[in-house]
Structures are given as C-alpha cells and as structure tokens.
Design a binder for these strands. Sequence first.
DNA 1: GGTCTGGTAAACATGC
DNA 2: TGCATGTTTACCAGAC
Length: 502
Amino acid sequence: MGPTMPPSKKAQSPSSGASASQGMSPPYRQGDAATAASEAEAADLSLSLSASFSKAEDEELTSLSWLHESTDLLNSFSHSGLRSVSPLQDPDGQHPRSPSSSSPSPDDALLGDGHSVYDLAAGANRKPPYSFSCLIFMAIEDAPNKRLPVKDIYGWILEHFPYFANAPTGWKNSVRHNLSLNKCFKKVDKDRSQSIGKGSLWSIDPEYRHNLIQALKKTPYHPYSPGLATPSTSPPTLPQTFHHSPPLWSGSPLFRKNGGVLLQGTVSHLSVPSPLTSSTVYGFPRGVIQNGARVRSQALFPVIRPLPVSPVGSRTSAIRSSLGDYLSRGQDSPSCYSPPPCGEDLQDDHTYSTAKSPSRLCSSQVAASSCPLDDDDIIAVEIQSDVKTEPREIPLDSHLAAAAYISQQPLRGQRRSSGSGAGTLAGSSLPWTKSRARGISDTLPLKKRRAAAVEKPPESDDEEMKEAAGSLLHLAGVRACLNNITNRTAKGQKEQKEALRN
DNA sequence: GGTCTGGTAAACATGC
DNA sequence: TGCATGTTTACCAGAC
C-alpha cells in the first residue's frame, strides 16, 4: 500500500503505547458494574477459546473450520458482560481513527494504546490496512465455494472496502498482479461446457492457506494481529503467541455467525494474574463484546451501498450449482482439488516468510490413483509426511517437469520476479516463481514457448519419465530430510509445551 | 545500507 | 474492435 501502509510493528509495539488497562477508552473498558464473576467467566471462556485456537494450530491451520468451533465460545463470551465492536468501527461508532496515524490524536486518548481497528467511517477515503493478498484471500474465502472469478473479487473488495470505489483503477491491476504472481492463489480451470464468461476462477491454494492466514494475522488492524494484541499489565510468563488467533474480518464466517461482530481485545483489561491467562491475554483479541450488540456486516460499510444480493455469494453459488459435480468433487475431495506446488524450492518461496507449510513438498510415495477432473494427466501424490496425508495431484506435464528442473538447477540468487509478495524470491532462493511451479513448459510466454519448442526437439517419453522419476527421487530425499527437521521442531515444541505445563 | 515485502504502472498476449 | 483477463517486467517505497 505504499505510503499508506499501516504503521510498522515498531510503532505499534506495546511499549510505545499506553497499557491496555491504562489507556482503555471508556467504550472498551468494562463497565464498573461488571462483576468479578463475569470477569472470571470471561477468563474461563478466553481459556477455552485459546485452547480452541491451539487446536487449530495443531491442525496446521489447514482449514478455517475451527473458526466455527469457536463461535459458540465467542457467543458465550458475548454474554459475559463484555461488549462487541465492529472491526471497522470505533466502539462508539463516532470516532474514526486513522489507522496509519502514529502520532497521538484525540482519538488515541479515547482508544488508549491506539491499537484501533480499520476505520470504516473513513474507509471511503482511506486505503484498507490489508494487503491485496489478504483482500483477495478474504474475498475468496468469503465465497461459498472458495473460488471466485476476478470480477467477483473486484466486487467483494468494492463491497467491503469502499475506498476502492473511488480509487484509480490501478488497484484492479494490482489484484490481477497478485493473483498471477502469488502462489497462494491459483486458477481453477473452468469446465469448458460451463462458461461464466471471461477468465478463470481463482481459489486459495491449500498449501499456502496458512501463509495467508499468517499474513492476515500480521495485519496491524486485524483484531488478532500483534499490533492489536495488548500486553497485560503484568508480563506474561508464557511466550507470547498469536498463532492461536483466528483470522477474522467482516466477511468471515465467524464474523457473520457472530452477528457481524468482531471480537476485539476481550480480556486484556481484565485482571487475570495467572500465567495461563496472561498467555490468553496475548493470544486473545482485545476489545469487548456487548450484550446484544449486533452490527450487520453490510452496515459496516455505509459509504457504499451494498449490492442487493451479494454478487459474490450468488454468483459463486450459481457457479457451483452450474459446475455441479466438478466443483463438488473439488470441494469435497481434496485429492482432486488442487495441485500443490510440489517440487518447489526448499528454502521458501518468500510468498510469506512468516509461515511455511510443512506439507508443501511431495514425498516419494506416489499413489497411482488418478484424478479424472483434469484433461491433463494427473497423478495423485500421497503425502506421506506425518503432518498431512492428503493425496495430492500433480500434473505430469508440469510438476514432474518442475521436479526435473529443480533437481537440475544449481542454487543461484535471483531477484524476485516482482513485488507484492507474489511468489517472490530473493537471496539464494531458487528461481521458483508461481509460473515455475506450474511447470517449465508453462513458464515461458507463449511466444517463447513456441520458440523453445521450435529450437528444442521434444524428448522421448522415456527420457522424460526417467528424468521425472529421478527428480521425484531427488525430492524424496529432500522430503525425508525436511521430515526430520519437522519432527525435531515438533518434538521441541512439544517438549516446550510440557515444560511450560509443569 | 542491504534485503524483503508490497504497491503501482506498463506492456503484452489472449479470449470473448 | 474493444474490453476483460492474465502474465510479466520494472520501479519504487516502507519496514526490518
């Protein structure tokens, strides 16, 4: 977002602001009438929620379904004497606050430590604090079938972030740019018989979903972001962790299930001396829930008139119904859902540096199950890691070739292909962009591909298969190595948790 | 100061 | 032919 990017973490460091209890504005502060019982209830609920988040972390955040698991807890929380606020609105709904303002403002005095939320009231004039990657992620996640055409992504962004209604059209270019370059997003080939117009459907690559979640959580104005997390008045004895923070936004299922209410900072102002609770304070959103405070999601965007019927939901629903079995299989059957960027560089693609899915790599265990969804030859590669056992499909003509490529390429530095964190590479990383992951044959532009096809006669199938097999074996070795690393890391974390329990 | 990350602009190709 | 979509490259700025 350039100059309008949210303030740095440094600017939002807890030490730079007033403590939660000191600076909590009256709307955030729990009322004096709140009883100790309600506080204890809130603390208990927060512990339960934190445990739920821990569970989600243990499940590698492969799904947002845990958001729904937490909904009941959150709803219970709403009855604990705390109040809720809109994610994009100040608690009183009257004091817009600049998200990028690092200098104290009158609103800061009201909002305490200044870790406010994205200001909806000024949303029409201010860029949202989310990166385009996050916006796209949210849009796609908000779709019933988790896939959207770019046009509906535009629509979702416009609907939820009125700023773009009057913004120059360059943001659409940025969206497309992100979709193309960011490995987190992948195209879903449409059924040729079911045309929805131009373009393709875009979905979230499950392999990178975690990365996007991490990125979303890093957003300073995300209710669960570190920037919003407020330290308790007493230092926690447990390491600060935000991994238990679910990503929430106005369109998230939890948000909607919670009546259009994002939880913000719920227990940071509570006096909970126990170490566990201190941890919870860190891992729990700041803010309060108000009994009966229900803010409709659409009402959060008063500047722009919501579409009569969500174009995203309706259209994607229509798409899902029209595509029928194809999409249902894609939804229900992860094995036939998306080809992972198997054979990617082992160092990281720098799509997001905060997280790395341990299951990104393919093992040597290749199941011969075929996936009939694609016209291309597909093999399902069973991930034999201890983390995830989902079979993954890999187009023979792309990933095997990619594996061959990666096995033959020496490490070399290369400047990232482009910005926006879209499959970027730097340093000693392999030049493994999103297009690389699609396969060498797909990497080059059409012209170049044609030229290459002319220059280089096609190898025989046997040679290609030998090369691919060798590459897979090569990857298998890396996989085993990474498994060891993953196991050691997991073991260490487990030991650390046990030590903390003791 | 270098690196990383993200935004923006632009050119180009492709398909409807 | 115009437009939307998709890809790629380049450059810039802020954060770390």
